[in-house]
Write a protein that binds this DNA or RNA. Structure first.
Lengths: 123, 123
DNA sequence: CCGTATCCAGGCCGATACTG
DNA sequence: CAGTATCGGCCTGGATACGG
């Protein structure tokens, strides 16, 4: 960046990359979205299963984060007209394309924790 | 996840992965951190260069995000005792290990934008 | 079982002014 | 040039109670 031969090309790449990262962060950056996405990587789950599986989450936030992921096209919500009601969530095809990114983030996050000895609380 | 043979092993993996992602998000999740990290990927930059390069950022936020990245061990701040003062920022070795993750995020974010036709503003 | 509705606290972040 | 200091709005997210 000090003395680039082609400033315009580099600037375009910077913008593209920054926007890409910002896009990714906007979609998966939420207090509980990592936990939700991790769980749905292994298959379909019901609302109640998610709630029980994610310790500490409130119903308000679970619904809110699920709705955002749904609106962003990452997960699909399937309602079965039964009594008692059943609602299942699964990744969409677009959601499945996140896998390499999610693995890269998980790997680096774990490397970071091991390197710095800082530990996180969230599940 | 519906009927796992070994619930404990899966739960541990879920926790590890979620914590990893949460760690990663805590470190690089900030309004301007994508922009900063993208720029430092290409080499050392001065404070003023960063400020000029990142459109719309205020000095307060630039300093704040730089300090957080520094405290998290991602970037190094180098002060040269000259007049006028000169301060340079660069990625640490730990910061360099983020590259695969950053690329994965940038790639997916761009794929997401192309797929959904949603566009972002941030640089 | 699967959610909504309401209230509210804390922190993120922008704008502005000032300094070694 | 490279920052600090201060104020204030807004949005995220937590707690709690209620509904189909």
């Amino acid at each position: 960046m000090r003395k680039p031969t082609s400033t315009n090309a580099l600037n375009e790449k910077l913008i593209t990359d920054s926007c890409g990262m910002a896009n990714a962060l906007r979609v998966l950056g939420g207090r509980w979205k990592p936990a939700i996405l991790c769980r749905l990587r292994y298959g379909t789950m019901r609302y109640g299963e998610l709630k029980k599986s994610i310790e500490g989450i409130s119903e308000r936030m679970l619904v809110a984060q699920l709705r955002e992921l749904e609106n962003d096209g990452i997960i699909k919500r399937m309602v079965y007209p039964e009594v008692p009601p059943r609602v299942e969530y699964k990744l969409t095809d677009l959601g499945l394309t996140m896998q390499p990114m999610l693995i890269a983030m998980s790997d680096w996050g774990n490397l970071y924790r091991e390197t710095t000895e800082k530990q996180m609380v969230e599940i």
